[in-house]
């Protein structure tokens, strides 16, 4: 989508922002040997926000910092750490902003309640209609 335009514009702007010359972190572009662990890491990385690019997950960014964060995630997963513990660790440092998965906190409750509220409103609006129809048919 237009996000691509963004990507292009960022590329266009790239020479202005200096980049480092170091090779990427060892596990930035290297998968874990254990497929189960790699899948776990991948799932987590897809839900962590790249702080440099603002609108991409670290799983699909070429920014060096995203690579470093992927390295961190893979290292910790390989060490047996739980994905949610890693998420919590990052949230402790960057706040909820870093996680695309909304956390269970009071400020997010309205968001979780929203689908229920929508269904409730729909039910309230429709209830009268169908019920009355039924009554009419019964009396008819």
């Amino acid at each position: 989508m237009k996000r691509l335009i963004l990507a292009l514009m960022l590329l266009f702007a790239a020479p202005v922002v200096a980049q480092d010359q170091l090779p990427p972190a060892p596990l930035a572009y290297k998968q874990l040997d254990d497929p189960a662990q790699e899948a776990k890491a991948q799932r987590l990385m897809e839900t962590l926000r790249c702080l440099k690019c603002q609108s991409q997950s670290i799983a699909d960014s070429d920014a060096p910092m995203a690579g470093d964060m992927r390295h961190q995630v893979r290292t910790r997963i390989a060490a047996g750490e739980d994905p949610e513990a890693i998420r919590a660790w990052l949230i402790e440092r960057y706040g909820d902003y870093v996680s695309y998965a909304p956390q269970n906190k009071p400020i997010m409750w309205p968001l979780f309640a929203a689908p229920l509220v929508f269904l409730l409103i729909a039910a309230l609006l429709l209830r009268g209609r169908f019920r009355r129809v039924k009554v009419k048919e019964d009396t008819a």
């Binding site: 897809e46 996680s99 909304p102 956390q103």
Partner: peptide, 10 residues
Amino acid sequence: GAKVSVGPPY
């Protein structure tokens, strides 16, 4: 005053 992200997991 809270910065959050809402993404695919939601």
